[in-house]
Amino acid sequence: MNKTSFLSKMKQKGTFFYWGIVILPILNYLVFFIGVNINNVLMAFKEYSVVNYEKQITWVGFANFAKIFQDSEVLGYLVKNSLIYFAATLFIVIPLTLLFAYYIVKKYTAHTFFKVTIFMPSIVCSMVLVIFYRTFVNEILDKIIIQPEISLIRKDETALPIMLMLHIIGGFSANILLFLNSMSQTSVSVMEAACIDGASEFRTFRSIVLPSIWGTIVEMIVIAMAGLATNQANLQAMYGNEASNTMRTVGYHIFVSIFDGGAESEIKYAYCSAFGLLATVVIAPVTIFARYLMNKLGPSDR
């Protein structure tokens, strides 16, 4: 066989192999992402009802969206709480994780132990973490240290801070791995040179580490923004489907609404789709614009 014929045959076989591999994932994407999202948009304008044991679907225009705004007080709580969790991630979790990761990368005292303890919550099922945390609050804080009349987890004024604390404790572990991996690729020789030149810790961090991992920081913020409408903040694990309106986040509200008519019922599906669609329409452009701005205005690693 001459070389041209061999290469042509290999190219043909390569095409078969290529399509053999990618065809199923492409079909999966078309059905479970594109298809599901198109169906989601359509569902947002429908209403599901049961008449004489028969499922009936009717087009209702923007009625499902109107329902979302009907209870403006609840909507206010959902938006406010989701923003509070987002702010906690943005201003506490991400900056502190960044500082923790830098500490570990520089192999300061007990870095291995700290790495394990920071990462630990991310491997624990949220149910398990909540059991441990709830027991601690109920049995230690409630009964021994603070002794309030109503449990801190049940009282409206204290429930949110208690859940926020759990969100922050668990939040470090979700981000630490990406920051560590990103930082470990920062050039050691550049950091060494800075150290020899007498650069301070802050200067090295600001001028070398930060620009080199800026992309990761942007992605973390983008994920946190996306989480504005999906973050359930462990509410399901802590309260089941019964968390009070004053504590609910958008993500939790959408999830538990699926069960409002019973787990097998489709009555609330359209409402959930409308809520999800509305959240996507609001958050997606903001996220993309914020990402664009952060990439444009952020520090350069050159």
Binding site: N40, M225, A226, A229, I254, K268, Y269, C272, A279, T280
Partner: peptide, 28 residues
């Protein structure tokens, strides 16, 4: 071209937050 499209699809899918599609998935 397909490879480039697939790679961009991944990036776009990761970046764009899509919310509340569980009912649609259930129905499908």
């Amino acid at each position: 071209v397909i490879s480039t499209i697939l790679r961009n699809v991944v990036i776009v899918t990761i970046i764009i937050p899509v919310v509340g599609t569980m009912p649609s998935l259930l129905e499908l």
